[in-house]
Amino acid sequence: MIKVNTEDFPWHPGMTVRALLDEKLFTFRHIIVRVNGEFVPEEDYEKQLIQDGDDVLVLHLMAGG
C-alpha cells in the first residue's frame, strides 16, 4: 500500500510514476509529482519506480477555473 495525496492506494511491484498516474486517471498535464518529498521531473515518470509504503504527492496546479 502507498499513500497518494494522503489517501491509501494499492501498490504493485514495478509500479512507475507513469503507471500510478494512469491508474489514478490523473490525465491533467499541469502537475507536480513528489515521492517522499523528492520532486520527480516529468522525463523520469516512465522509469521512476515507486516502492511499497511510499508517500506520493500529485499536485494538480489549477486554482483558476
Binding site: 490523473f26 491533467f28 504527492l57 494538480h60
Partner: peptide
C-alpha cells in the same frame, strides 16, 4: 460564479484542504 475561488483540485484531488 467561480471567479472568486476555484478550489476543486486543491480540495478534491490534491487533498490540500483536509
Amino acid at each position: 460564479q467561480h471567479d472568486e475561488a476555484w478550489l476543486i483540485f486543491m480540495d478534491m484531488v490534491n487533498k490540500q484542504l483536509p
